[in-house]
Simulated scan of single mutants.
Amino acid sequence: MSNTKFILGCFDDPDDMMKGIDNLQKASVPIYDIYTPMPIHGIEDKMGVKDSRLGYAAFCFGCLGATVIFSIVYYTLVHDWPMNIGGKPSFAIPNFVPFTFEWTILFTAFGMTFTYFAATHLFPGRAPRVMDLRATDDRFVIAVSAKGNVPHEDITNLLKDAGAVEVKHNERKYVSYE
């Protein structure tokens, strides 16, 4: 059994990379991921990436923040310590608006930060997994999982036919405890 975990096709040109994606998809080869040094328009549609659901999470965190502070202010000003200031009612909703707005923004900001870290596995202190360091500089990389049923030579040929400058086989690194 081969130790190859990923087959990486490195490209100089984004158009060649898009051609490589087309070649792999026509041959029904599943693509693990694509790494680019800059945003490429249309790549999400080509890869079938769905729209993010982070907006729903932001709405839920905002509702949670508004509910928490509204409950705290209501309990404090109406039940725990009601004050009669100039004959105004204790439960005046316009008085609650600034606190509610600020806590809505606060909960949304912190909630989205934690959600982003959880969704991307980029917790502080965790080293990012980079397939090829040149993908952060000037190369466009297509990573194909080598565990599929397609022979490695066929994948290599498809990538080279699309204009890959280099095709690498990443191998598993086994840790020795000796």
Rank of each mutant, 00 (worst) to 15 (best):
R134P: 03
L54A: 08
A27V: 01
A66Y: 01
L77R: 04
K46P: 01
E171L: 11
R172Q: 06
D80P: 09
D45Q: 13
F11S: 00
H169F: 10
G86S: 11
T76C: 13
V150F: 04
F99M: 11
N95A: 15
D33S: 14
L77D: 15
K168P: 07
H79I: 14
M38L: 15
K26T: 06
A143D: 11
M83Q: 02
D138T: 09
F114R: 02
W81Q: 15
D80V: 13
S52M: 04
S145R: 15
K50G: 05
E171Q: 13
W103A: 05
L158P: 00
K50C: 04
G42M: 12
H41S: 13
T136I: 03
A109Y: 05
D33Y: 11
A143W: 10
I72H: 08
I40Q: 09
K168S: 10
V73S: 05
E44P: 07
S52F: 04
T136A: 06
I7A: 00
W81I: 14
E102C: 09
L54C: 03
G20M: 07
V49F: 14
S176Q: 03
D22L: 10
G48Y: 03
I85R: 11
I155Q: 13
V78M: 14
T36R: 00
I85Y: 14
S28H: 13
T100K: 02
G48P: 07
F110M: 09
L159R: 01
K50H: 06
C10A: 13
P39G: 03
P98C: 01
L8W: 03
K147L: 04
V150T: 13
D15N: 09
I7L: 00
M17F: 00
H79W: 15
R126S: 06
F70R: 00
T67H: 03
P151Q: 06
P94R: 02
E153G: 09
L133N: 15
H152K: 14
T100C: 15
R129P: 01
S28F: 08
E44C: 08
T67A: 12
D51R: 08
V150G: 03
K147G: 04
S145M: 15
P124Q: 08
G111S: 09
I155W: 10
I69G: 06
N84R: 14
P124L: 11
K5S: 11
H79N: 15
K168T: 07
V130A: 00
S2G: 12
P98D: 02
N170F: 03
G9V: 04
E102W: 07
A164L: 08
M47A: 02
A143I: 14
V141Y: 00
A57V: 08
S28V: 08
K5F: 10
F61D: 01
G62N: 05
I34E: 06
P94Y: 03
Y56V: 10
Y32C: 09
M83A: 01
L54V: 08
R139G: 11
Y174F: 12
M131A: 10
V165D: 08
E44L: 10
I43A: 05
Y35H: 15
K160E: 11
P128L: 11
F110K: 01
C63V: 08
F11I: 01
F96E: 00
G163R: 10
S71F: 14
